[in-house]
Amino acid sequence: MRTYSLIISFLLFCLSGHAQVTEPSRQPWYVPEHAVLQTAGGIGMIAGGVGYALGAHRRFDADVLIGYVPGTYTGDRAFGIFTLKGTYSPFTLPVDTHWQIKPLAIGALINYTPSQMLNRSRDDKYSYKNYYWWGSTVRLGAFLGGRVGYGFNTRTGRKRVASAYYELGTNDLYFVSLLTNTKGLALGQILTLGLGVKVDF
């Protein structure tokens, strides 16, 4: 028992010592780096979530969001929409010491709307093969966008960025509609706009 206490004490000592030598901003890998809040873009009237900035130059954002669409917009009960999103921003243009612009963002997302209101299309309802080839609850999306960020230091000296972004995109079903109607549909008719903010923790 005494030995066990000693080991625990030693581990605690090591951990605290380790914490002292590490940069204060360093978090365990699984702790999200930023919070995100978005409206529209097909993922909710309001969608909130967290994400990570990945890669050597932190050009790749991976976000997970939960969106809410109130019943006023669905005809009955509210929708919850679960979204995974990846965004690649290859360029960062510093404007001054605080402001920065990411003029181009390329991204893709997948979302799931597990609402009972959605009549499922893949219940093998129809005997002919691939009659309903899409799923009514899962959507794939792609978008182009941009982002404006403001960098600042916290009182502990950690550097944080708050940014606002837009995403002009579409989903798989709209895109398929455009593909088969090159004359009757215009690109502008299949677009959706998403607006959001991201703040580093």
């Binding site: 529209a40 873009g41 097909g42 669409v69 929708f79 709307t113 079903l173 959706t192 706009l193």
Partner: peptide, 12 residues
Amino acid sequence: CGLLEFSPNQTL
């Protein structure tokens, strides 16, 4: 105007 869409399944 159609751009700001909350869900492709919305009714409004």
